[in-house]
Amino acid sequence: MASSIPASAPAEVAPAAAALPTTRRRTRRLVIAGGLFVVALTAMAVTAPWIAPRDPERQSLRARLKAPGWEAPDGRAHVLGTDHLGRDILSRVIYGARVSLIVGFAAVVVGGLVGATLGIMAGFRGGFVDTVVMTLADAQLAFPFILLAIGIIAVLGPSFPTLIVVVGLSGWVGYARILRSQVLVLRSREFIDAIHALGGSVGRIVIRHLLPNVASSLIVIATLELARAIVLEATLSFLGLGIQPPTPSWGGMIHEGREYLDSAWWISTFPGLVLMATSLVVSRTGDWLRDLLDPTLRGE
């Protein structure tokens, strides 16, 4: 009697139990693939001088607005064509990754430091600090940040540091809100009380005990923020407020090609497609990371 029940049970349980690890394994593979994409992009940016077929800033009057595949007099083809100054699009796209990644990664660090610090402070201290931080967050979300970004850049002039600070600060609210809510929950947990009772300092509690507990959320937000920062940098460059010419940037290239859309579609289209692919892959990787590390973050 008793033996007949366990005999059928594993058959029913097994598929359900196996389904979870399979999804997780698939998600993990996707995360690794996304990570490899970022590594490849970074490698491309770092090794640009060696892998780019030509000097990205070198102009040639006789090679202006040539279609993709056009063969230059020196016998080498311009695989993605040339722009209105005869510069090689492929080389400029490769070099353009530098601006996107430098601003993107640095902005994530700036936004993460500011947002995480304020978020943890707000959650841990509560009260007045919490009210101030959350009101600031509300105010920032209350109007189109891009207007403020443009205003600040117009004041300080476009440069790498300005762009990094502006793009970074545009994203602090994301970190602050999620870390605040997590720290609020953690703060009342017994192990924090225990460390308090044992005489652990606030700094020690935050760095040794709170940070490790929110690390996975931090990684997920940082990945999603990287995608957003890259797109925002490109948007500012497109509006003429990013890294100034002749340094190639994807947004700047899309801007330059806009006047030639009718006659030379490739100038805007190729950097745009690379930008779109980067944004898509990085933000999807963030989603997958979230599924893998921290399913509770879903829907926020």
């Binding site: 490109a234 899309i254 805007s268 289209t269 745009g272 779109m276 944004s279 933000s283 999807r284």
Partner: peptide, 18 residues
Amino acid sequence: ALVGQAAPTFFLGILFIL
């Protein structure tokens, strides 16, 4: 929808114009 969420607005505009 995923592409639509990830695509930069200004580049979508350029693509549509093109």
